[in-house]
Design a protein around this nucleic acid. Structure first.
Ligand SMILES: Nc1ncnc2c1ncn2[C@@H]1O[C@H](COP(=O)(O)OP(=O)(O)OP(=O)(O)O)[C@@H](O)[C@H]1O
Length: 733
DNA sequence: GGTCGACCTGTTTTT
DNA sequence: CAGGTCGACC
């Protein structure tokens, strides 16, 4: 009994042992909030005889849910915790809607639209408008939905929804979405709430079922999530929320720090528990974090201390540009004993590029966490659309995506005929054929499609193994052939490889309709499902955005790109609130580090295709100089020098000390687009071979922006420019 | 109906 | 820079 409590401090124990009051655990980074949740669940099951089935734990990401479940499993290995409901809000919503959605007119095989699908739906409703404009509307619609509004909410007036006819767009989108029988991300919360509000039996079932509901990262819940939460709390449900107002970083998604304040208001008996000891970081890291976050005006002041050792001083690393930044980071990484607990953090996904290039060049294993665009690739989206339409014949976006891909003669005219029938697109297709509304070519194409649809349905209904189903669909739709006929070798190979990864991923999934539904759901809700799991390498450097580090910790952390404009990402129209949010993000990033922290900054950076001179982040200036090693090397000094005497970097044979081990031969990398940094001196007249273009000769060489650019005329007749740093060329005699 | 090239437009961040 | 979009042409 004590074993579950023995690794907790007094305040944590209080939180674990109180099974009566609503609890608000409010505490700084690394103070053991998540540990309270796992311990409390384990304790409830083991010592209080709670059935796991009667506990709901809400996490911020699916990954966190998985890890926490594993953690609890290892704490109480003798208990079966399969019934424990451990999910994100979105995943919980999907779970409820699958079971009870019919009560609000939702079929159990609805598909979930991601942001791109949503945008396409809006574009489809307003075919004459530009996609760029509609994207702006879509963003606002999503945000409004996250705040819990619909197109007729009075609140829309008071907000920044000044855009022309915002309500009209909003309403049209809502309407199209309903007709499609699909839901978007926000709907997973909103419509679940709606369902619970309208159906006493379902609501009471859940309220009675859950004796204990816990919410992690509470500071980042939004209004609609709070509303859902309130629906789930019955008179015997204990609600425990855990958060840190300094770590609220999802305002752009409607997160409201206010939720922390209103919690007490809604649940008057709330007991607030504060944890003040940080167990994660060294003193030196913690004081850097504190010195920055204290500049936020809107925050609860809180004490945070650590009994950990002082540790090493954090280091500031200045660089000329992003390439040098990456090279320096790599050099520091290779000094470490292993790559197990190292993270490179950045503000925007695009910043991963330089790091990836350098790491793969030096053969340092790395993994980009999140932002895996696997499911956003064209061929994958096509395949998934094909599967979706079998499950949900109302799914307009999927239908439009693949009805004429590959070409079946169903063009604009034919489509107009088909769509005029009803929202059931397959029925419509059938009617259009029967009524002879289609031209010869369109008719035979439509008939073939219909045939495939029926066979596909049959396979699913007969509980067919999904891999076979997928192979059938890809073959008989002609999608596979379409991609096999792709002319560009690299593109073709990539596409076919991706399609076969998709098919392989299906191997692990339960057969039939049910299996397919859950597969599609899991990939929309958790984009990291595939792509990383196959080759998860423990001993690898982790690359991710600062947002993605929520709840994680690493021995060594690099917080990169600390420049105004990037971090904080201030832009026109940014307000003080936005800077405060960025400051919190910085605080989150820094407090991921357990032992060693590096802060990096570059004087110039390629943005929108041109060089930008960068100023050091204002956050760096908020840290007392004595708190870190290294200087903020002011941009201009190295910047001007750099141009005054010709570039040290153009001529990389003149290797800076930090880059001495640069590889001399091209490295084979797994991805074809990964570039190779080389140290080869090219001269006019040299003959070279390129894997892409064949043999050729260098006809000119010039130095631009500190990079050597060579021009090569190939034997095939074409001329190409290469940056010598990255050129994938081999010199021949 | 499909391909190629000229142009334009845009970046935070994620479930 | 890169990705998407639109018009011209086969
Ligand atoms: N009572 C304790 N004694 C020793 N170590 C602890 C204790 N509580 C938590 N820890 C350790 O401290 C670290 C941070 O804990 P945890 O992740 O629970 O904090 P957190 O408050 O959720 O952090 P954050 O808000 O930054 O995500 C973990 O490595 C955890 O194992």
């Amino acid at each position: 009994m004590t074993s579950l409590l023995s690794s907790l401090n007094e305040m944590q124990k209080e939180a674990v042992l109180d099974f009566n009051n609503p609890l608000l655990v409010l505490a700084g980074a690394g103070s053991g909030k998540t540990r309270v949740i796992t311990s409390k669940i384990a304790y409830a099951i083991k010592e209080m005889n709670y059935s796991p089935y009667r506990i709901l734990a809400v996490t911020f990401t699916n990954k966190a849910a998985k890890e926490m479940r594993e953690r609890i499993n290892s704490m109480i290995p003798d208990e079966n915790i399969a019934g424990l409901e451990m999910r994100t809000f979105h995943s919980f919503g999907a779970y409820v809607l699958r079971r009870y959605g019919s009560k609000i007119g939702l079929n159990d095989s609805f598909t979930i639209y991601d942001d791109e699908d949503s945008l396409n739906l809006l574009c489809n409703a307003f075919p004459d408008e530009k996609k760029g404009d509609l994207r702006e509307y879509m963003k606002q619609i999503s945000k409004a939905k996250d705040k819990g509004y619909n197109s007729s909410s009075a609140e829309l007036n008071g907000l920044a929804y000044h855009m022309q006819g915002f309500r009209t767009y909003f309403a049209a989108y809502e309407n199209a979405l309903r007709k499609s029988g699909c839901v978007d991300f926000a709907d997973l919360i909103i419509r679940t709430t709606e369902l619970l509000e309208q159906n006493d039996d379902v609501r009471e079932y859940f309220q009675q079922r859950f004796k204990l509901i816990l919410v992690d990262e509470y500071q980042d819940t939004n209004a609609s999530q709070f509303k859902l939460l309130k629906c789930l709390v019955g008179k015997d449900t204990q609600l425990v929320v855990v958060g840190d107002d300094d770590q609220s970083i999802y305002k752009f998604r409607g997160a409201e720090i206010k939720n922390i304040l209103s919690f007490e208001y809604y649940y008057p008996n709330t007991r607030i528990i504060k944890l003040e000891e940080n167990y994660r970081s060294t003193k030196n890291i913690l004081r850097v974090a504190s010195s920055v976050i204290k500049n936020n005006k809107e925050r609860h002041d809180k004490t945070i201390f650590t009994n950990n050792e002082s540790g090493e001083l954090p280091e500031l690393i200045s660089s000329i540009d992003a390439d040098e930044e990456a090279l320096k980071v790599r050099m520091l990484i290779s000094r470490l004993p292993n790559y197990k607990s190292v993270a490179i953090l950045y503000r925007t996904n695009a910043q991963s590029r330089e790091f990836e290039t350098v790491l793969s060049c030096f053969r340092i294993p790395y993994e980009v966490v999140g932002a895996l665009r696997f499911y956003e690739r064209e061929e994958i989206k096509d395949a998934l659309a094909l599967f979706s339409i079998i499950l949900n014949p109302h799914d307009r976006i999927s239908f439009l995506r693949i009805i004429n891909k590959p070409a079946r003669g169903i063009g604009k005219a034919a489509l107009e005929q088909i769509l005029s029938y009803s929202d059931h697109l397959i029925d419509s297709l059938e009617f259009a054929i029967k009524d002879n509304k289609l031209s010869g070519k369109a008719k035979s194409g439509a008939t073939a499609f219909l045939d495939m649809y029926k066979k596909g349905c049959e396979l699913l209904n007969n509980n067919c193994v999904l891999k076979d189903f997928a192979v059938f669909m890809l073959d008989s739709s002609g999608l596979k052939k379409l991609y096999e006929d792709e002319k560009d070798e690299t593109i073709r190979r990539g596409r076919l490889e991706n399609l076969s990864s998709l098919v392989n991923a299906l191997e692990k999934i339960a057969p039939g309709r049910e299996g397919l539904i859950s597969f599609l759901e899991s990939i929309t809700l958790d984009r990291t499902t595939l792509g990383s799991d196959d080759e998860e390498n423990e001993d690898s450097v982790k690359l991710m955005t600062m947002h993605n580090t929520k709840g994680l910790e690493f021995d060594t952390v690099f917080v990169t790109g600390l420049e105004d404009g990037i971090m904080p990402s201030v832009r026109e129209g940014s307000e003080i609130d936005d800077v405060e949010e960025e400051r919190r993000l910085f605080y989150v990033a820094v407090t991921r580090a357990k032992k060693k922290l590096f802060l990096t900054f570059a004087s110039k950076r390629m943005l929108w295709g041109s060089w930008n001179s960068q100023k050091p982040s204002r956050f760096l200036k908020e840290i007392p100089k004595s708190f870190y090693k290294g200087e903020i090397e002011t941009a201009n000094a190295s910047y001007t020098n750099h141009f005054a005497f010709e570039p040290r970097r153009s001529n990389i044979t003149n290797t800076p000390s930090w880059a001495q081990n640069i590889v001399k031969t091209p490295t084979k990398t797994k991805s074809s687009e990964v570039k190779v940094v080389k140290n080869v001196n090219y001269e006019v007249g040299d003959r070279v071979i390129s894997p892409n273009y064949g043999r050729g000769e260098i006809i000119s060489k010039e130095i631009k922006n500190g990079k050597t650019v060579i021009r090569v005329r190939f034997e095939k007749g074409n001329v190409a420019l290469f940056n010598t740093m990255y050129a994938n060329l081999t010199k021949v005699e």
